Amino acid sequence: MRISVIQMSPGSDKRRNIAEASRLIRAAVEADRPDLVVLPEMWSCLGGTAAVKREAAEDLPDPQRGRAAGEAYGAMQALAGDNRITLHAGSIGERTGDRISNTSLVFGPDGSELARYRKIHLFDVVTPNGESYRESDTYAPGEAVVTVLLGSIRAGLAICYDLRFGELFLSLRREGAELIILPAAFTAETGAAHWETLLRARAIETQCWLAASATCGTHVDANGAVRSTFGHSMVIDPWGTVVAQAANGPGWATGTLHSDRTAQVRAGIPVLDHRRLA
């Protein structure tokens, strides 16, 4: 399976973000012919006020009720079908009540929705340089652990801050994941310190491939402050080797998942069989 991880520098202008995501997806498909393309976290609206984020959020389709798809949903669904790719549409805002959910969507090569995952762990922290983040003021946490079958490969779904919670990744491995997909918008500070280390650790612990698409550049938050995100989108193998990494700035990186490599690593060190604690 060839995997392209898209790296974007989005802001709060939803239509502009959709146009840029569409351009990068088409360029990656033309250049590298991937089977799977992955977008970053909240690529459709990063930054802005709570009102802006809610306006950009979408009511996701419910087939039983026949609700129409929103602009980002419809654009990504069409891109998957038009290009005959599996598209992990990063995450977008989903209207789910008083708050919104940070929701990943996966579309198959026929444009059908294959999976939906809502971010479980919310980033409510003050970073060492004093920047404050309160995702729970705007977003509601998800509860379900989600995997999806992509051809012969079972993929586990996670988003950004989930990366710091190894128990989620162990749960995904136990659910049969060979690949874990992580869209993210890591801060520049925490990314420089922990991004690659955590990604490689999760790959080694779970003996899974990691496909991590990240935002880069700057955006403006609700208070008018400029925020920077780290980028460095990566594909990592189950031994913890970085097999593809995006350069600085918008673009993509493409790596190839080999299931025989997964089998080799798991046979050599069968950690799941050796676990004695939950």
Rank of each mutant, 00 (worst) to 15 (best):
L36Q: 04
R23I: 11
T138C: 02
L257V: 06
R164Q: 08
V38K: 07
G108A: 09
G151H: 01
C45A: 08
G81C: 03
A72F: 09
D237A: 04
R33H: 09
G151V: 00
G70M: 08
F123R: 05
G176E: 00
T138L: 07
P34M: 05
R118Q: 05
K53N: 11
P10V: 15
A214L: 13
D162S: 04
R84Q: 12
Y161P: 14
S4D: 04
A184E: 06
L198T: 06
T49R: 04
E205L: 02
G231L: 10
T241W: 02
T206W: 00
R2L: 06
L114P: 01
G47C: 11
G224F: 08
W195T: 06
D32G: 04
R174N: 08
G224C: 01
A188G: 11
I204L: 12
P40S: 11
M42T: 15
D137V: 09
P10N: 09
A50N: 10
V265M: 06
Y161T: 10
A57V: 02
G166C: 08
T147F: 02
L257Y: 00
V37T: 03
G249E: 12
R164Y: 06
L198M: 08
E20R: 15
P128G: 00
R26S: 12
V220K: 01
N248T: 15
Q77R: 05
F186K: 14
L105C: 14
G142N: 01
K53L: 13
E55M: 12
R154I: 03
L46V: 14
T229M: 11
G90K: 13
M234R: 14
L105Y: 09
E71C: 11
D110W: 10
R164K: 05
I180K: 01
D98G: 09
D59A: 06
G111S: 01
I180H: 05
A201I: 09
A115H: 03
A253D: 11
V125R: 04
D162N: 07
M1Q: 05
R84G: 08
F186P: 07
D162R: 00
S259A: 02
G11L: 10
A75I: 11
E113G: 09
I153W: 12
S9L: 07
A115F: 01
S213N: 13
D260E: 07
C45M: 08
A75K: 15
A78R: 15
A51D: 13
R261N: 02
A21G: 15
A192P: 02
G111W: 00
I3T: 00
P109L: 00
R275A: 05
L198W: 00
L168R: 01
T256W: 01
H121L: 08
G251C: 06
L24Q: 07
R134H: 11
Y133G: 01
V220R: 03
I18K: 08
V226W: 04
D273Q: 09
E167T: 10
A184V: 11
V126R: 14
A19P: 10
L277Y: 13
A278F: 05
G176Q: 00
H88V: 15
T218I: 14
F169R: 13
R99K: 12
T241P: 05
A78M: 10
R134F: 14
N17K: 13
T262L: 07
G268T: 03
C160M: 13
G217C: 12
E175I: 02
I25S: 01
